[in-house]
Every structure is written in structure tokens, then in C-alpha cells.
Design a protein around this nucleic acid. Sequence first.
DNA 1: ATATTAAGCGGACCGCAGTCCGTTTAGAAT
DNA 2: ATTCTAAACGGACTGCGGTCCGCTTAATAT
Lengths: 203, 203
Amino acid sequence: MSLIPIRPGSPFGAQPERSDAARNRERLLQAARDLVAEHGVDAVTMDMLACRADVGKGTVFRRFGSRAGLMMTLLSDAEAEFQREFIFGPPPLGPGAPPRERLIAFGEARIKYVEEYGELARAAAEHSPQNRHDAPPVVLWHRHIEMLLREAGLDRDPWLLALSLGATLDPERMLHSLRVHGVPPERLSASWRELVTRLLKDC
Amino acid sequence: MSLIPIRPGSPFGAQPERSDAARNRERLLQAARDLVAEHGVDAVTMDMLACRADVGKGTVFRRFGSRAGLMMTLLSDAEAEFQREFIFGPPPLGPGAPPRERLIAFGEARIKYVEEYGELARAAAEHSPQNRHDAPPVVLWHRHIEMLLREAGLDRDPWLLALSLGATLDPERMLHSLRVHGVPPERLSASWRELVTRLLKDC
DNA sequence: ATATTAAGCGGACCGCAGTCCGTTTAGAAT
DNA sequence: ATTCTAAACGGACTGCGGTCCGCTTAATAT
């Protein structure tokens, strides 16, 4: 009988991690960051990571569940920071600005996020529509957009409309525009602003 | 010195397929259709297909290049039909209707397409952002949307705006709404209509 | 018919994500 | 200190997509 462990090492886990487990987790995260820095996200394999961290492969998967899980863990700090900003931070991203401005700021922040962490974000979503669309951060962004649409007075199925807007901000899509087509980030921002502005024209 | 073969067996290939190759292609396609019908797209493996068609694995990959290529081939008839409809067919999908109506009809047709062939379409795009975003049909849809946006008078970066609209119609996203969240297709259509209408409000 | 040759073929092989299960060990209980 | 046990570990193993390369064969030239 115990609490549901949200995440190993999280303050809500019933009992603390065993010491060897904690040590291995640190070793793995450090090794993962190093490997990503050295070879790029896409070239890092789970075997490579296990080897570098001097740990069995089983341990890697016990820790992170999957390659996507590892990438999510590597992203979690940046993700938490991003969430703090749009939930509690200063306007126009945080509360206080009119919903249209917040929505525009949200998209622009996402674009910057993808510029910096895009490869990780893409790898964190690979190989599983489930994870891609129902991961907690994704659900949170969706809800945030939906809320802003409602506040802006858009009452015609804001849930689905939020999904459409979220699709525009999808990391893989934006990365493809940025890296393959060489679209400058300012152009992405401008297009997002245009889209949101037109959508909320008279609400 | 020969023409670039567009596709084996296509009228533009320099020389016709060898007879054994043609026979094997038919066997493979038939086997693939059977296996998909029996087990569903996601459960069909390339080894399974080779075995059922009584052909070496190398032959399967020589023919289709990859799993995604196989799925594209299975889709090609439906895809060609869809293209014919929005390029040459009767309005409002084909030419003759005002661009806003055509755009709405395009989205609705895509939704029906995904209802019917969604799993195949998703499998045809899996495991390669390159294929996902730069496959010929995808590029064509994108160009079509962009053209309609221009015709409707939207002159602020219609290329990127078309990308956003295309993102809304992405098979994986729509399948997820349909199958996981149980959103009825009519609701998807209504939301698409709302999106396009608002976007083109006063152009 | 025979020789030539390039397209086609098959299946062993590779790398990778992910699983399984027998072994080890940290930490609690005595 | 010793025992106990559940958590953690490690690495062999599986399944899959995809490649490689030596062998076969259809089509053509002679």
C-alpha cells in the first residue's frame, strides 16, 4: 500500500530511491547530456548510453522506459521553465495581458523553444502517437490554448481549434521549416501572429 | 542514357519490367492487401509479407524501398483518385467554386480520406520527417492550399499559412482525434469550416 | 542454340529499441 | 552481525526495419 509514484525521485514517490539507483540515474543523465553534445540527439543510441554510463542496458530502460522517455527527462528542466513562464510569468506570456496577446506570445515562445530544443523535443515524441499527443506537457499546452481561445470569446469548439493551433506549433513541423527549408524564425513568428490575429479578428 | 524511371512499371520507365519482377510485384501487392485486411496495417511486418508472397526479403525492399514505400504504393490508387478530384473534378472540390468553398471542400474530403485510409496514410509517413513532409502528394496538397489562399486574396505569407492549415489535416492528428478521443468526423468538418471561414473573413 | 549481361533474387546479416529473467545488493528487521 | 526481501541490476535475447552480396535468370545479341 503506497502512493502512486509520479516519477522516481519525485517528492511524491512513496519511498526514496535506493542509493545505487540514484547514483546510476545521475551517471546516466550526465552521460546522456555528454553524448548528445558530442554526437547530436539522433545519433545517440541506448546501447551507447548504457556503455558510456557503465551500466547495463536493462538499467537504462528501467530508468526511462524508452528512448522517448529519456529525451523527455533531458527536456524536463527546460519544459518546467517554459510552463512556469506561461502560467505564472510576466505578461504578455503570463497572465495579465489580453488573450490575443498571450496567444501570440505563446507561439513565439514555442518557436524559440523549438529553435533551442527542437531535436530533443522531436526525439521525445517519436515512435508513438500516444506519447506524441497525450504526454502531459502536450495536454497542458492544448488546455492553455483552449483557455485563451475561450477568453477571447471563441465559443465554436475551442477544443478542436486549439488542436489546430497546436498542430502549427508542432516541433517536428517547425524544425522542418527551420532546418530543411531555411525559414527564419522571425518569419514563423510573423505567420503565427497573422494566423492568430485573423482568427480572433472580431471576438 | 535513359529517362529517369519515375516508378517501376510506370509509362515513363525507360524499359519495361522483367516478367518475373512484374509477377512478384503482383504477388507482393496481393499479399500485402490480404495481410492488411487480416491483421490491420500496424501488425503487418516486412518479413511476414515476404513469407506470404513466397519471396525473399531483399525482393520486398528492392520493390518498395521501405515499409513506408509499401504503404504509399498501397495508397497510390486512392491518392490518385483524390488528386484527380480536387484538380479536375466538379466543384466545390474541383475548379469552378470560389476559393473559400474549395478550401472547405478540400478539408472535408481529406477528413473522409483519413476515415477510410488513415492507418495506411499514417504508416506511409512513419519514421522519416523527410518522407512525411516532402513526399510528392504532401507537396501537392500544400501547393493546392497555398494557391487557394492566394486566390482568396490572402497575401501575407500564404506558403507558411498553407503549412499551418495542412498541419490541421495531418492524418496522424486526425486519426488520433477520431479513434482515441472519439470525435465524430462531422465535428472535425465543422471545426475546419469554422477555421477556414474565420481565416478568410474579409479577403 | 549459345553466349552474354544486367536486372532480379534470396536470405544471412546488421543495428537498434525494447524485454526477460537469473543474480546481486541496499537497507530494514531481528 | 545475520537474515531477509524487494528493488535494482546486467546482459543475453527477441523482433523489426533495412542492407549486402554472391547466385540465378530473363531478355538480348550472335
